[in-house]
Design a protein around this nucleic acid. Structure first.
Lengths: 350, 350
DNA sequence: GTGAAAGCGCTAACAA
DNA sequence: TTGTTAGCGCTTTCAC
């Protein structure tokens, strides 16, 4: 064999031709072999694999994508990678995707439609085979780019009337009802809600589900007890202090996400209030941190793995079997209450 | 039933030829135009841009990469995307990269060399132009793949004798010395260190710097007060309880990262100890969360943006100007102490 | 079962 | 300045 490893400068990346030459077959046979085509005799296949090993060869995905029209890249758009919910989600999505031979492109939109537009554009350039839009924003307009190009999509929280678009519905309702019921059972009647930013679909859905849950529990909704925050730690602190300024204060606070709840925990502590003795707090998401707050956070669990799995399945079906008439177009991810230490009976004096 | 042609005016993704035809120029002119070649007359350029706009055309990056040999993709390998330090780092890196027209491929290795090997392979297949190895592990062997292919790399914490490899040194020493001094000034003499897993370079460097700092402060090192943890919340809790079982307990605990410190905060609370009255705690990293713990965490700040910037610069130089003899091969990122609420004087009774 | 050859969409010589 | 053309590394007919 030819020794070309003498110097790094001399070592060229082997290509399919190099392999073919070494194995003494045509490049077509090499291609068939690496694609596991059954039409290759064992004898040749063995020679090819040997050559591949020897050369440490692997195919150039760009060339592959170009000719096959399939990039094996999936995009995932999240709202804010800095919120621990999303890294956990991305991790699951990546694991599944990689296991199926896909690469992923991740982007945070930070809720900014302009950023979203850039991300979509970049993904289009890379010829993604599908995009999971898990940014929860009102970004339908920008998404046109994708639908116009017939790129499969899966959206969290809303439907788009397009055959290439699937939807993942999040059943917050069950978890939120359970949380409100849990609070009611504990004796709470004054329950506040620190909502997420209204530009997020998820925030609005959660808030609506809260209202419904309150009514279903026979309690009454107080407008002043529903405050729009921004799903951040700081936002939770601010929201809490606004609640403290009220004449009649709530004895329990349900938060639109865990970050908000953790902010509340801190603000309560600083205000000299004990959780849950003075005020109960419930989060939503159940990020890994929730178990480690002081006290551990009672929260509504939303499974990142379920969400990631649904997103991947939806995209994969569309990418690999687009003409199947019975493709699943709608997915449901459920939520459930996880009771930990941040909820308890309301102060006796009330 | 439905034909393959879509509704949008028989819309196939436009390619460079479509644009050329519409603008009535050659494809070379289109190529030159989109690449901002000065050799195109304004008149034609205008026609081309118009056609591009009209068709909503953008180039296929796979074709581009194939012919130009440049993918404009950078890889970034982190240890664990679930540790908030990394998303913050990734976000910075992505921002910078995208601003310079690069796409990024992210992977978590979870400290597993086998996973690392897979990631490297995937990146190689996508023809990355450089890889930032910010996983802090002892992964030199696997990295051979990259050096053998002459892929630029930038490594955190260690050097590789290869012209394509740059190094980012993290000056933990300054921050750790400041922290120890801060503790000593407060009156602490018994300072423990909850180390990170020894499989990480960063963990070892941090531990060594701690030992040096203790000696430089004239204090003595107690073997029992240095415990190997794993940089997780749970690890911090475990480490703390081990410390509690000791005959003579430390009055201050310096942790190898913030996650460990936050675990300690929680364990201390559960053990009925107050921070900082009964025990002082210091973290390292200064993740966003650190400001929101109870009490707010005193910690050693390691700037994610500085780290990301250095990593990107190193890679970019290698990718775009590899033959420049005065390429910067070594970068330094500094640390500094951020004093918040988790440190105070040791208990008077001692 | 195997190989020869025609491109995939683009860039970069080289011509004109 | 502009156009023509030869590939980049691969998959995929279509012959054999």
């Amino acid at each position: 064999m030819a020794r070309k490893e003498t110097s790094k400068a001399g070592a060229k990346t082997p290509d399919i031709r190099t392999v073919a030459a070494l194995a003494k077959v045509s490049i077509a046979t090499v291609s068939r072999t690496i694609n596991n085509s059954p039409a290759v005799s064992e004898r040749l296949a063995k020679r090819v694999w040997q050559a591949i090993e020897q050369l440490n060869y692997f195919p150039n995905t760009h060339a592959r994508s170009l000719v096959s029209g399939r990039s094996r890249i999936l995009g995932i758009l999240v709202e804010n990678i800095t919120n621990p919910f999303f890294p956990e989600l991305i991790q699951s999505f990546e694991e599944i995707a990689v296991a199926h031979g896909y690469e992923i492109l991740v982007s945070s939109t930070n809720g900014d439609p302009a950023v979203l537009a850039t991300c979509v554009r970049r993904m289009l350039e890379r010829k993604v085979e599908g995009v999971a839009v898990l940014s929860f924003g009102a970004e339908e307009p920008v998404l046109d780019q994708l639908t116009h190009r017939d790129i499969p999509m899966v959206l969290a929280e809303f439907r788009l009337d397009d055959p290439k678009v699937s939807t993942i519905l999040l059943d917050y309702s069950t978890g939120i009802h359970a949380a409100v019921q849990h609070l009611a059972d504990l004796g709470h009647t004054r329950i506040a809600f620190l909502a997420g930013p209204h530009k997020l679909h998820s925030a609005i859905t959660r808030e609506n589900d809260f209202r419904a849950a309150i009514q279903d529990s026979g309690l009454t909704i107080q407008k002043k007890w529903i405050i729009e925050c921004d799903h951040t730690l700081k936002g939770g602190m601010v929201g809490f202090s606004q609640l403290q300024e009220l004449g009649t204060r709530p004895t329990a606070i349900l938060c639109s996400n865990d970050m908000t709840a953790i902010g509340v925990l801190r603000a309560a502590y600083m205000a000299g209030l004990r959780v849950p003795d003075d005020v109960s707090v419930v989060g939503l998401d159940d990020i890994d941190f929730a178990e480690f707050t002081l006290p551990p956070l009672t929260t509504i669990r939303l499974s990142r793995t379920d969400l990631a799995r649904s997103a991947f399945d939806a995209l994969r079906q569309q990418a690999e079997d687009p003409n199947n008439p019975k493709i699943q177009r709608e997915y449901l991810v459920s939520t459930s209450l996880v009771v930990r230490g941040s909820t308890g009976a309301p102060p006796a004096s009330l």
